[in-house]
């Protein structure tokens, strides 16, 4: 069962970076873009399982630190010509707090 979970405050994540939420069954990378948009993706590149939370954020995309695959933060899809997709999780913010609909165990 998925569950809305408060994971921290927006200012806990520096702009253009991500922090990790260690959920029951998966690691989730919570990103903050230059425009303060927040996205949550499974912290695992579809290519070779690289930790996306350690990548470089640009626009609404992240580049995987292992082999430079570029993924859309909005839907988790790899930018062409690469293929693949990682799970995304719904996010909401309230009073500066970030909530993520995390997958259950």
């Amino acid at each position: 069962m998925s569950e809305w979970t408060e994971v921290g405050r927006i200012e806990d994540i520096p702009r253009l970076s991500a922090r990790v939420v260690r959920a029951e069954a998966v690691d989730v990378a919570v990103f903050r873009t230059a425009r303060d948009e927040i996205f949550a993706l499974r912290d695992r590149c579809p290519h070779k399982s690289g930790p996306l939370s350690q990548g470089i954020v640009h626009g609404s995309r992240v580049t995987c630190p292992l082999h430079n695959l570029v993924l859309e933060l909005t839907d988790g899809r790899a930018a062409p010509p690469d293929e693949g997709c990682t799970e995304t999780y719904p996010v909401k913010t309230e009073d500066g707090k970030i909530w993520v609909l995390l997958p259950g165990s």
């Binding site: 979970t5 994971v7 921290g8 806990d12 994540i13 520096p14 970076s17 922090r19 990790v20 939420v21 260690r22 959920a23 029951e24 069954a25 690691d27 919570v30 995390l102 165990s105």
Partner: peptide, 10 residues
């Protein structure tokens, strides 16, 4: 702080 998870649930 950047080196540790923002939230630890498991």
């Amino acid at each position: 702080r950047e080196f540790v998870p923002i939230k630890q649930l498991n």
